[in-house]
Design a binder for these strands. Structure first.
Length: 206
DNA sequence: AAGAGGATGGCCT
DNA sequence: GGCCATCCTCTTC
């Protein structure tokens, strides 16, 4: 085993086009406290011209972090109960980000199990909201700098994933631009989430 | 001020 | 495959 990487990926890592960052995040490790997750699936979201991006209609209170510098976490709340985590990237103000969709818990499995009772080891971080649950990432970490050595939330380099192991396809749960293959995952990984096409939800009212 | 719907997940058949 | 919990955020009036 190689020497343990203790230094978070630096800011310049994120100051690149979102697709390049997304690709290189595969195999990288997100750590929050004792729990660490090796990323096996991510999705790229561009800034103002991507109709699927939260930044599409300009800055709001929720997406403000997206318009800031790269290397910060954009965490949002959805469906009344879940959090999802992105990493802001690209030049400052480009408002692009990479959604962390799934990964393999490589440290702190016991702590992750406590947070995800009943889940199999494979499912601990298999899905964007499961991943934040396993890592205990929530609203409090919106805007957190993941490049700081003293940050509780960090992203460190992992083993490089070869090009022929990187697969691409349409983004999950997204109507707009479903033709754009900006979802990326590592071929053959058990922790990659199950693909689900976007289904408009019927509003059940009393 | 109100309504619609969501970058999901868990449980059901 | 379907259903729906649960509440925040944005849009529109």
């Amino acid at each position: 085993m190689g020497q343990r990487q203790l230094t978070p990926l630096p800011r310049p890592f994120y100051d690149r086009p979102v697709l390049a960052v997304a690709r290189d995040l595969l195999g990288a490790v997100v750590r929050h406290g004792e729990v660490a997750v090796r990323l096996t699936e991510v999705e790229a979201y561009a800034g103002g011209h991507d109709p699927a991006s939260h930044a599409f209609r300009g800055p709001t209170q929720r997406n403000a972090v997206m318009f800031g510098p790269g290397g910060h976490a954009y965490v949002y709340f959805t469906y009344g109960m879940h959090f999802c985590m992105n990493l802001v990237c690209g030049p400052d103000g480009s408002a692009s980000a990479v959604l962390l969709r799934a990964g393999e818990v490589v440290a702190g499995v016991d702590a992750a199990r406590m947070r995800r009772p009943g889940a199999s080891e494979r499912d601990l971080a298999r899905g964007p909201a499961r991943l934040t649950k396993a890592l205990a990432v929530d609203r409090a970490l919106d805007g957190a700098d993941v490049t700081s050595r003293r940050s509780a939330l960090q992203v460190v380099a992992g083993e490089r994933v070869p090009d022929d192991a990187v697969r691409r396809g349409p983004r999950v749960g997204v109507n707009a631009a479903h033709d754009v293959p900006w979802r990326m995952w590592i071929d053959g990984e058990a922790t990659v989430s199950v693909y689900r096409r976007h289904v408009p939800r019927v509003h059940s009212k009393k």
